[in-house]
Simulated scan of single mutants.
Amino acid sequence: MFKTLLLAVDVNAPEGAARSAEAAFSMARAEGATLHLLNVVPDTGMAIVGASMAADSMKNALAAAKSELERWAKANVPDDVSHHVHVAEGTVYDQIIRTSRTLDIDAIIVGAHRPELKDYLIGPNAARVARHATQSVFVVR
């Protein structure tokens, strides 16, 4: 049913990925699926902020994020789970959805923290992915 899975991993809070990662590993094994790991580096936002940064700052940030995600994968992804590492730049929920389309992903796995009052008004990344993705989305708490 699901041959390609996308797991969003925040390399800045790897302990938060533990439950969603276990769910993704279990699904990948059960389905014989390929697991794609994605870390999103937030963009600089306003142009004035980006202009004040060194020209290669984002390039360095993306390289560091990829290196950290590869380290996380080596330490956490079981040997029997086929996986690929991806890093994107931009808004987290937007890049999860874009990457899932680009890679023709069948299902997305995202972690979610306990909702706070602001989440009901604004909506966390997991809620936005669940609302806007065309694929099945599994939200793991």
Results as ranks from 00 to 15, higher is better:
Met1Trp: 01
Met1Pro: 04
Phe2His: 05
Phe2Arg: 09
Lys3Ser: 14
Lys3Leu: 08
Leu6Cys: 06
Leu6Arg: 01
Leu7Gly: 04
Ala8Asp: 05
Val9Asn: 01
Asp10Glu: 02
Asn12Asp: 14
Pro14Leu: 08
Glu15Val: 15
Glu15Ile: 12
Glu15Met: 12
Gly16Ala: 10
Gly16Met: 09
Ala18Val: 15
Ala18Phe: 05
Arg19Ile: 03
Arg19Lys: 13
Ser20Cys: 03
Ser20Gly: 09
Ala21Arg: 10
Ala21Leu: 15
Ala23Leu: 12
Ala23Pro: 06
Ala24His: 01
Ser26Gln: 13
Ala28Arg: 01
Arg29Ala: 03
Ala30Asn: 08
Gly32Arg: 14
Ala33Ser: 14
Ala33Phe: 12
Val40Ser: 05
Val40Pro: 00
Val41Lys: 00
Pro42Lys: 15
Asp43Arg: 06
Thr44Pro: 05
Gly45Ala: 13
Ala47Gly: 00
Ile48Ser: 13
Ile48Glu: 12
Ile48Asn: 07
Ile48Val: 15
Gly50Pro: 06
Gly50Asn: 07
Gly50Tyr: 09
Ala51Trp: 12
Ala51Leu: 15
Met53Phe: 11
Ala54Pro: 01
Asp56Lys: 03
Asp56Cys: 07
Met58Asp: 00
Met58Ile: 14
Lys59Val: 04
Asn60Val: 09
Ala61Thr: 04
Leu62Asp: 14
Leu62Gly: 10
Leu62Phe: 04
Leu62Trp: 09
Ala63Thr: 13
Ala65Asn: 02
Lys66Met: 08
Lys66Pro: 04
Ser67Arg: 15
Glu68Asn: 14
Glu70Gln: 15
Arg71Cys: 06
Arg71Gln: 07
Ala73Asn: 10
Lys74Met: 07
Val77Ile: 15
Asp80Gln: 12
Asp80Ser: 03
Val81Leu: 08
Ser82Gln: 07
His83Lys: 11
Val87Leu: 03
Val87Ser: 03
Glu89Met: 09
Gly90Leu: 06
Thr91Asp: 11
Thr91Ile: 14
Thr91His: 13
Val92Gln: 05
Tyr93Trp: 15
Tyr93Gly: 03
Asp94Asn: 10
Gln95Glu: 15
Gln95His: 06
Ile96Ala: 06
Ile96Arg: 02
Ile97Ser: 05
Arg98Pro: 02
Thr99Lys: 12
Ser100Met: 02
Asp104Glu: 09
Asp104Asn: 09
Ile105Tyr: 10
Ala107Pro: 02
Ala107His: 03
Ala107Gly: 08
Ile108Cys: 06
Ile108Gly: 00
Ala112Thr: 14
Leu117Glu: 14
Asp119Thr: 11
Ile122Pro: 05
Gly123Ala: 09
Gly123Asp: 01
Gly123Thr: 11
Asn125Trp: 00
Asn125Met: 12
Ala126Ile: 09
Arg128Ser: 04
Arg131Asn: 06
Arg131Pro: 01
His132Arg: 13
Ala133Met: 03
Thr134Pro: 03
Gln135Glu: 10
Ser136Glu: 09
Ser136Asn: 11
Val137Met: 04
Val137Lys: 01
Phe138Gly: 08
Val139Glu: 02
Val140Asn: 05
